[in-house]
Simulated scan of single mutants.
Amino acid sequence: MAADARDEVDDIVAAWQRERPDLDTTPMQVLSRVTRLARHLDRARRAAFAAHSLEPWEFDVLSALRRSGPPYQLSPGRLVTETLVTSGTMTNRVDRLTERGLVSREADPADRRGVQVTLTAAGRSAVDAALDELLEQERSLLSSLPPRDAEALAASLRTLARHV
């Protein structure tokens, strides 16, 4: 491998191979890079959301509503499922988003005891703008990969994720 094609993970793996030649360090070659890329992605996500005055958790809730399609409305229980948080956490998040005018609570016409969380026009504008920024950041992160390689990487990661 050419010296300019090496990265810090190659150095870490080489050191482990030197110190522990009895171990197969192949998983590190993939997963250490995934971990490092995840850190870069997290920073890019936070920057994209901050540019539109959103926290990552706010984007998660707003984007779940936006992806649901018109009328951009979900039950709190469905939001819990979509965002992988507890119901208590979701109640707090909906309260905070309601205070900011990004969502509203409405009575569920199918169940008078229930409520639906609805994306407001301001919420839709915020999540759409943040998504545009996020995709720009993500394109930048992937810019060194030819499209065919990006597609192959996506397919490989999908296969891996299905089995984890």
Rank of each mutant, 00 (worst) to 15 (best):
R18W: 00
F59I: 10
S156F: 15
R158P: 04
P109S: 09
R20P: 02
A2K: 13
L134P: 11
L153V: 15
V85F: 05
V34Y: 04
T159C: 04
Q73I: 01
Q17D: 10
A155V: 04
D22G: 09
V13G: 11
W57T: 10
D11P: 03
D4P: 02
D111V: 03
G69E: 01
Y72N: 10
Y72M: 03
R113C: 06
V127G: 07
A155T: 13
R139V: 04
A64W: 05
L141S: 13
G77M: 01
P147Y: 07
I12Q: 12
T81G: 09
E8T: 06
A126P: 04
L135N: 11
P71R: 02
R20C: 06
L62C: 00
Q29E: 15
T120S: 09
S125G: 07
E106A: 02
E151Q: 15
L141D: 12
G77H: 07
L134H: 06
L142K: 01
G123E: 02
E19Q: 14
G88I: 03
M28W: 13
R148Q: 15
A121V: 15
V34L: 15
S68M: 02
R113T: 15
R139I: 05
V164R: 09
R45I: 04
T120Q: 01
R112W: 05
R112E: 14
H52I: 03
A44W: 12
T35S: 11
D132S: 13
R96K: 10
S87Y: 12
D11W: 09
T91N: 11
L84E: 14
V9F: 08
R39F: 11
S32F: 06
H52A: 04
R36D: 00
T25Y: 01
A130Y: 00
L145V: 00
S32L: 14
V117C: 08
P147V: 13
L84H: 15
S68V: 05
G123A: 00
M28Q: 01
E99C: 00
L41W: 08
D108C: 00
L145D: 07
Y72F: 11
S144Q: 01
L97G: 06
Q17R: 13
L145C: 09
A150P: 01
E99F: 00
L134I: 09
Q137L: 11
G114Q: 04
P146L: 07
L157Q: 14
S143C: 01
A126T: 03
R43M: 13
R67Q: 03
R20H: 15
V9D: 05
L97V: 02
P76S: 10
L102C: 05
D60G: 04
P70Q: 10
P56E: 06
N92I: 01
W16T: 08
A51Q: 12
A110D: 15
S125H: 14
D4G: 07
A15Q: 12
R162H: 13
Q73S: 14
P147I: 10
